[in-house]
Design a protein around this nucleic acid. Structure first.
Lengths: 237, 237
DNA sequence: GACAACCGCGACAGTCATGTTGCAGTTCCA
DNA sequence: TGGAACTGCAACATGACTGTCGCGGTTGTC
């Protein structure tokens, strides 16, 4: 977890105890704001075991704290996606590995990963990068026949993100991330119908996803790796 | 849309203009709070074209307004689920119909349907009822061989809710609800892999969903029909 | 050991939102 | 048509939260 101060190379490095304080504040903020997004800075300070003025010393405003949380969480996310080797490992192996890694990260940074990233911020760039690599991984899988040839990659990415988000809700959120990852990948690829006997379609035009892929970088919505959402400023959803 | 006053049979019925005001306030609140969950009562009043005191005349507190929104939206949801005849129509027909209906409703009441329902409120009861009927519909589908025999119905319900939620995000949110419903149902049943040629599993135990069904009524998370969330009081966009 | 960095304390100012109130004008319904 | 219900206005009180500040004590690093 990089501290915000080390994100600014021009800034003098913090003393070790200040580094620890920053990390403690970010982790406490994640816990407190996950439980109640409207919690006050005072409540975050109490959870971190520091004075409110100490938070203000390190983060000028409440928004600055949120931005730092988002940046730190997305940096963590990028790292665990890297570990899954999406460009080089066999696609399904990479997919499973990345899914498990992302689930672990999201467990710890659920709130921070759902924060809307400020445009141009490291978090926003990181989100875009992760989404791009996800699309590329799905593209490789499709090229290898692991996804239906007509798969809309953008829809696939959104479904994948939604399943990851959902895997962390409910009573089984404490389940091993590898088990959850298996479930997510299996549901993503095979759905709920019995294997090898697809049900007759409801309509004659049997396309899994017919809509054209949306243009450009307009990704949004609830990514398993975090994501911006159109409810501006809000943490929920 | 029933007004909150008519939900209280002991209360005298409102005059017609007051009924219109209440409806206008609820609809304006949905629009304004969807865009910004932290919007003030003043902003809701402006959007509704009434004075803030008029809102306070009909809803004692901000929370009372939210509760009324949730109750009204869930009543609407129950109605559109009824229209899909989940108990009597063939399961896939019912599923498609209900999905399209729910998408239409959720388009108009997205914020209200995501509000946490107060325990014991009509909204909470309605949510439970809808979830129960969803599980029953999936049970019927499984009994007819339309879902894999080992399907975890609770996971299926959560996946279904997640897909409905996701269908409303992204650039294609303006797409016809029937098209979106087709997409949701198809993805739910068949996933993204090519039809009739399931990919070899990553692990030898090839179960689509192995975890036992969670107990009782502990449903939570993001239902397509709305749902409580563990972020208390937050609407988080 | 010196010194700079770090932290906590308590207070203060400002902003914002909510909830309430009385009163006068308007609208609807029997 | 009369009267009750409905609504808007402006003000007020309260509470909560954020951001800032000066100062003194503590800690870490060279």
């Amino acid at each position: 977890m990089t501290s915000p101060s080390s994100a600014d190379p021009a800034a003098r490095p913090l003393r070790a105890d200040a580094e620890r304080s920053v990390r403690t504040i970010l982790e406490a903020a994640e816990r407190v704001l996950s439980a109640n997004p409207a919690a006050s800075m005072e409540q975050v300070a109490e959870a971190a075991g520091v004075a409110r003025t100490t938070i203000h010393r390190r983060f000028a405003t409440r928004q600055a704290l949120m931005d730092a949380m988002a940046d730190a969480a997305v940096a963590q996310l990028r790292a665990v996606v890297d570990e899954g080797r999406p460009e080089t490992a066999p696609p399904l192996v990479a997919l499973h590995e990345i899914t498990a890694n992302v689930l672990r990260t999201k467990i710890s940074w659920r709130f921070a990963l759902d924060l809307p990233a400020a445009p141009g911020s490291p978090a926003a760039q990181g989100q875009r990068d992760v989404a791009r690599r996800c699309l590329e991984l799905f593209g490789r899988a499709r090229d290898l026949g692991l996804l239906a040839a007509r798969t809309d990659l953008e829809w696939a990415r959104r479904v994948y993100y939604a399943l990851i988000g959902e895997a962390l809700h409910g009573d089984d959120a404490g389940t091993d991330p590898d088990v959850l990852a298996g479930r997510v990948v299996d549901t993503l690829l095979h759905g709920l119908a019995p294997a090898a006997e697809p049900a007759p379609p409801l309509n004659r035009c049997r396309r899994s996803v017919a809509a054209p892929a949306p243009a450009g970088e307009g990704w949004e919505g609830r990514e398993p790796w975090g994501g911006c959402l159109d409810r501006d400023g809000s943490a929920d959803a």
